[in-house]
């Protein structure tokens, strides 16, 4: 591959993997990952190189975000703390997703992650994190990350910290989340998405009926066109402004040629307001 050959020049550098905002150095992520995956009972030979690289990337990120959370926790403002919390949760969800895409169970992802955290930061760090959170249970954390049956306990502006988050997930897992014998995450239930469409205030009956037909599919809002629908009415219903039809038009340029003419049964993706 020519891309590789270019690297032969001394003067030509390829962009490496170090992340610009990385404050911490994680020791030998590539070399030690095999052992950590084996510890987590993962058949490493069954994973593709792509799977491995993705897992290591997101595990590394989730490790940094946890370290960020635990260190300096006392000195941060509420707003800063919310951001660090959010970054951590998001990194856990991404790592859970990377694990699911590689065929790992959530418990395997959690054990893999636990090993990384332990190897890099040691028992003292884990104890400190656990004391802050009233018990640190990575398996619980990842089981929660892989299911929608537990509503998200925090939002960025709720004023609830990482500590509360972990405590809440620990309680939720005991109350709600079924865990099958092989520790696979339960099948996702899309009905329980709480981020479903809401009509714009003052919507009329037609607009309300449109909003009620919107389906949430893997996080996206989708609407199948019926006779009588128009982009401007849909825009009114969800954005409160018929002129915002262009937003819908832009997002569906692959299926709409003329915004005044939409075929019945066309499936539109509606950008969230």
């Amino acid at each position: 591959m020519r891309v590789k050959n270019c690297l032969m020049f001394m003067v030509v550098f390829a962009a490496g993997s170090a992340v610009a905002d990385a404050r911490y150095s994680i020791s030998n992520p590539q070399q030690s990952s095999y052992f950590r995956l084996e510890y987590a009972q993962v058949q490493v030979d069954d994973l593709s190189q792509s799977d491995l690289r993705r897992l290591i990337y997101y595990a590394d990120r989730a490790t940094r975000t946890l370290q960020n959370l635990v260190e300096d926790a006392d000195t941060r403002s509420r707003n800063e703390q919310d951001k660090v919390d959010k970054r951590f949760r998001e990194s856990i969800v991404r790592l859970a997703d990377a694990g699911a895409r590689s065929g790992l169970s959530m418990d395997q992802v959690a054990d893999f992650y636990t090993e990384i955290v332990f190897d890099n930061f040691g028992q003292e760090f884990i104890q400190k994190a656990g004391e802050l959170a009233g018990g640190l249970d990575f398996r619980t954390l990842f089981r929660n990350a892989a299911t929608v049956s537990t509503p998200a306990p925090v939002t960025t502006d709720s004023g609830i910290s990482f500590v509360d988050f972990l405590a809440a997930t620990n309680q939720d897992i005991q109350r709600d989340v079924p865990v099958s014998e092989n520790n696979q995450p339960p099948p996702p239930s899309q009905e329980q998405q709480t981020d479903g469409p809401v009509a714009f205030p003052n919507a009329n009956a037609i607009e309300l009926s449109i909003v009620n037909r919107i389906r949430v599919n893997n996080g996206r809002w989708e609407l199948t066109i019926k006779a009588g629908d128009s982009l401007s009415t849909i825009a009114s219903a969800i954005y409160g402004d018929s002129q915002s039809y262009a937003v819908i038009y832009d997002a569906n340029s692959a299926v709409i040629i003329n915004p005044n003419v939409i075929e019945v049964d066309t499936l539109l993706i509606l950008p969230r307001p």
Binding site: V93, A100, A152, P188, Q193, T194, N218
Partner: peptide, 23 residues
């Protein structure tokens, strides 16, 4: 991705709030 067994934790704040495009 359709192949993924994972659905985001329910609140949209769990997703990236600053996306590249709406999709």
């Amino acid at each position: 991705s359709a192949a993924s067994a994972l659905i985001l934790l329910a609140s949209p704040s769990f997703a990236q709030d600053v996306w590249i495009t709406p999709d």
